[in-house]
Structure formats: structure tokens, C-alpha cells
Amino acid sequence: MPNLIRLIIGFAFVGAAVALFIFGFWGWGILLVFLSIFIFITYFYNENMLIAQWYLRKDNMPKAEQFLGRIKSYEKELNRVQHGYYNLLIGLIESRKAPMKSEKYFKAALNLGLHMDHNIALAKLSLAGIAMGKRNKLEANRYLAEAKKADKQKLLADQIKQMKDQMGMMDKQQQVRYSR
């Protein structure tokens, strides 16, 4: 329902802007056009998620969690396209607190749909790290290969290489243990 109200207000602002242009109030008309653009942006991108992403980039997890906490029921409040991104953000926050508990959020994000390749790669890289923590090398390798395939712009290439190196070190440690 709040999304419907946003659309109604956005179109009302566009109509008022057109009326202001007709009557010669160009300044107020331009202002209303910008306000309507802002309202339409918040229809497609929830403002709490945008602010939470900004705080995640600033590495302020408590504030990001606070803004995501304002979304009570993401199925009702967010567009269907945003469901996967909501779970991805929750998973990133949860991975700092309890990494093994964040697995369900990353899997839900992938199941609900992420549309940007680097976000898919990030979710799969995080799942590879969780699989490594569980000492499941086969699953970790599979997720790393999928992450590398999804990372077309090489934004996570360093992290993928680092994780492969860590897996190699795990293999060496296991070989040393077994040789004793």
C-alpha cells in the first residue's frame, strides 16, 4: 500500500509541475519535477535499503542493521526485485556477527534473484567462505568457480584469489597432519 501512495503522489507532482509550467512558474515546476523523480526512485529502490548500503560501504554495521530493521516485512514493503538484495544485505551484516548463520540469507538471495553479476559473485564468494569454515572443500571449490564465472568485471578477483590461496594452505596443513 505505501508503494501505491508513492506512485499517486509522484504522478500528482508531475501533474502539478505541468500545470506550473503552463502558468509560467518555471522554477516551481522544475522543483516539482525533481521531487517527483525522487519519489519515483524511492518507489523502485527502498530508501532504507539505499541508506543501509551506504552505511555498509562506510563499514558502519550497527547503523546499516538499524535501517534494515525498519523494514518489518520485506515481502510486503519491497518490490519483488528487491527481495534478493534485502537478503544479501542481511547476510553481509550477519556474516560479521555469526558467519555460519548467514548462509541461509545468501542462499535466499540467490534463490530470490540478484540481477547484477557482481552481487551474485559476492553471494557465492561468501558461501564459499562459509563452506571453507565447515571444511567442505568440494562445495567451497564449486562456489569459488561460480563466483569467478559471475565476476565478469573482475571486481572480486583479488578476494577469489585470496580464498583459493587459503584453500591451498588448508590442503598443506591437512597433508602435514596426515603425514604425522
Rank of each mutant, 00 (worst) to 15 (best):
K101W: 06
Q66C: 11
K72Q: 13
K134C: 00
S102F: 00
G113K: 08
K152E: 12
L125D: 09
K97Y: 12
D151M: 08
K107C: 02
E139W: 00
H118L: 06
K58R: 15
A123L: 08
Q153A: 11
H115L: 08
M116D: 13
M116G: 01
A145H: 09
L88Y: 08
S73G: 09
N60Y: 09
R96T: 14
R57K: 13
A98K: 15
A121C: 05
A131S: 04
G133H: 00
L56F: 10
K97W: 05
L114H: 08
S95G: 03
G133N: 03
G133Q: 08
K76E: 01
M132V: 11
Y143R: 09
L112Q: 15
K101A: 06
K63W: 11
N136F: 00
G129L: 06
Y85F: 06
G69L: 04
L89E: 14
K76D: 01
D117A: 08
L125I: 06
D117W: 04
K137M: 13
A109M: 07
L114N: 07
S73Q: 11
Y105F: 14
E77G: 00
E103Q: 11
I120E: 07
R57F: 10
A131Y: 00
E103D: 12
A109I: 03
P62R: 12
L112W: 07
V81Y: 13
R70N: 14
K152N: 10
L114K: 12
N111F: 05
L110V: 00
L138T: 11
Y74E: 01
Q53L: 12
S102I: 06
H118M: 03
I90Y: 10
E77M: 03
Y105A: 07
L125H: 07
V81A: 07
L68I: 08
S126Y: 03
K134H: 02
Q53Y: 11
L122K: 14
E75T: 02
K134S: 00
A131V: 01
R96A: 08
E75A: 06
D151A: 02
Y143V: 01
K149L: 04
Y55C: 09
K63T: 15
I130M: 02
M100E: 12
K72A: 03
G69N: 12
G84K: 11
P62I: 01
R80T: 12
M61L: 15
A108M: 05
A140G: 07
N119C: 01
K134E: 03
P62N: 11
A109N: 03
L56T: 11
P62W: 05
N119W: 10
L122W: 06
E75F: 02
Q82L: 06
L89F: 10
K124V: 01
L56E: 15
I90D: 01
E103A: 04
N111W: 04
E94Y: 05
Q53E: 15
E94W: 05
W54I: 13
K134M: 04
Q66S: 13
S73N: 14
Y55K: 14
A140M: 07
K104A: 08
E146M: 10
S73V: 06
I130N: 02
A123W: 03
